[in-house]
């Protein structure tokens, strides 16, 4: 066993030495090395698709390989925590999503958007309400009226628990639905198509195929303007409901990253988001481009934090 002991001691020694010596980094020319982009959701999902397309586009501007690393778990908490606590050298980027706002407010994550240096907001998708084609609800008002009459009886297929889209509606309109919690849109949508639940709320990209194929019928979209792909579908605003809600995705680096690195990244991602290949991809996938620089992104997040905080306060009474 002597050999084992000596090797173990050796490993520990080297570990300690390297740990002590590894802190200093020279930031003169950035980037010199491969960059990792942490995507806090699984491969194949919407966030992953945006992340991969973006990584692909930004490589041309940063001139180094950008690799997507999927770190899933805890509705994004695992990946975003890892991204926030990574070494602030600009070689670990994180795709942050709306969960960075909602998770800490619910006590499910220890990090907030303040633990990140924001780079750029890339994408925003409004929430779209949809029912089965032969559903009795012809408009969002039909749905709300029925909910007022039969509180808690209408089955809502929720793509995540808690679902802030439905909570926004419930709080504003004073109605309540029976929330059936599904694990993502991929499970919630078939339950509506199969007639097991009455309606769902998801992003256009997740439902456009079913809508065009006549398996789902959209009622209204929670955006400021109508969707290009669904020009006949009214917004909540047009229906007299002052409700806008959606999900968003952006790029961030850990707090403490040198400002010069942040500038390089902001410019590179500005170019990437405008890159024709990225634009084409986003259009094909029905994902909305919402291109905001670091400062506007910060304001955007603090506004969204207020929205979600008010919902959380409301149900936390």
């Amino acid at each position: 066993m002597k050999r084992l002991v000596s090797v173990l001691v050796g490993i520990l020694l080297v570990t300690a030495l390297l740990h002590a010596g590894g802190a200093a980094e020279d930031e003169v020319d950035y980037p010199r090395d491969d960059i990792s982009l942490i995507v806090p959701f699984a491969a194949g999902g919407g966030t992953d698709a945006v992340g991969r397309a973006l990584a692909n586009a930004v490589e041309n501007y940063l001139e180094v390989p950008v690799t997507v690393v999927n770190r899933t778990g805890g509705s994004g908490a695992v990946g975003m925590t890892e991204g926030a606590t990574a070494r602030p050298d600009g070689y670990t980027l994180t795709m942050i999503t709306r969960e960075i706002v909602s998770l800490p407010l619910m006590g499910l994550a220890d990090i907030t958007a303040d633990d990140f240096e924001l780079i750029r907001l890339v994408n925003m998708d409004p929430a779209l309400v949809a029912v089965q084609p032969d559903s009795p609800y012809e408009s969002i008002h039909d749905l709300l009226a029925d909910a007022r009459e039969n509180p808690g009886d209408i089955l809502f297929a929720s793509t995540a628990a808690p679902n802030f889209y439905i909570l926004t509606i419930e709080n504003d309109q004073g109605v309540s639905f029976n929330h059936i919690a599904y694990d993502g849109a991929a499970e919630a949508i078939p339950s509506v198509i199969g007639g097991h639940t009455d309606f769902t709320i998801a992003n256009p990209g997740e439902m456009i195929g079913q809508i065009e194929g006549g398996e789902l019928r959209p009622l209204a979209v929670m955006a400021e303007e109508r969707l290009d792909a669904l020009p006949d579908i009214p917004t909540f605003m047009e229906e007299g409901l002052d409700l806008v809600s959606g999900t968003w995705r952006g790029i961030a680096v850990p707090q403490g990253t040198p400002a010069e690195v942040g500038d390089v990244l902001e410019e590179a991602f500005a170019n990437a988001v405008a890159d024709p290949s990225f634009v084409e991809f986003m259009e094909n996938a029905q994902l909305g481009i919402h291109n905001l620089g670091a400062d506007e992104f910060r304001t955007f997040i603090s506004n969204d934090t207020e929205v979600i905080r008010s919902i959380v306060d409301e149900i936390d009474l």
Partner: peptide, 8 residues
């Protein structure tokens, strides 16, 4: 990614 909307 290929720009195809899966569905009916």
């Amino acid at each position: 990614i290929q720009g195809l909307a899966p569905g009916p």
